[in-house]
């Protein structure tokens, strides 16, 4: 099994691990988004969906798997970043890009920390009800009460802009890392990455805006 250790510890192995976890997290984003869209179907339908999820016996296993994906994605990246930081002990006085980097790739670390902060806040408040004054048990009511605050709705929208930036680099980068680079498919993958980033982040961002304009529960 030495080969597996060598793989995980190698620079290519680390990026393959991060890329694969990232692509699986993209899959999670799609299922989460699909669930969110049920909000627009109204209180009864959304609460029924939430109940269906919570009563699912597979939920704890799925949650552990999801947490593991996030942790792998974060920890391996932090380790790689720490090595990268060490790889240039004396930094340049002047750095000018020749056009390789994009806004997405440039801001990966910042958007990553923004998303991490968001995830902690999001799970702590809406899932576990920490630091909130929810009197409602029902998820629909919680979401609407929570996003009534312009600060929270604004932070949610800002984070989704960060998510879009993160995905605009991450999606195509994962394919390159897995060795998928081909004159026929790479332009399609790049375009699909931008489309995925804009569509997913944009649709997610509609929810806090909508909830805010609803002004909480009528």
């Amino acid at each position: 099994m030495r080969w597996l250790f060598d793989f995980l510890n190698s620079s290519i192995g680390k990026k393959v691990t991060v890329g694969l976890a990232g692509l699986l997290l993209c899959g999670f984003l799609l299922t989460h988004l699909a669930g969110n869209l049920i909000l627009f179907a109204g209180q009864a339908k959304f609460n029924a969906y939430a109940e269906f999820l919570e009563k699912n016996p597979l939920l704890p296993a799925l949650e552990i798997g999801l947490a593991a994906l996030f942790l792998i994605h974060i920890i391996v990246t932090l380790y790689a970043r720490w090595q990268n930081w060490q790889a240039r002990p004396v930094s340049y006085e002047m750095t000018v890009s020749k056009g390789g980097r994009t806004w997405g790739s440039r801001t990966m670390t910042y958007t990553a920390f923004l998303l991490l902060g968001f995830i902690i806040l999001h799970v702590a408040t809406l899932k576990y009800g920490l630091a909130t004054s929810f009197t409602e048990d029902e998820v629909f009511q919680r979401v609407m009460t929570f996003l009534k605050s312009p600060w929270m709705a604004g932070f949610y929208v800002l984070t989704m802009a960060g998510l879009g930036l993160h995905l605009s680099h991450g999606f195509e980068s994962a394919f390159q890392t897995l060795g998928v680079n081909h004159p026929k498919y790479t332009p399609v993958i790049k375009a699909a990455g931008i489309l995925f980033a804009v569509a997913v982040a944009g649709t997610f961002a509609v929810i806090p805006l909508w909830a805010y304009w609803q002004g909480g529960l009528k």
Binding site: K15, A87, G100, R101, H169, Q176
Partner: peptide, 8 residues
């Protein structure tokens, strides 16, 4: 360092 596909 480790490549992060910046393409610079």
């Amino acid at each position: 360092g480790n490549c992060s596909n910046e393409s610079e």
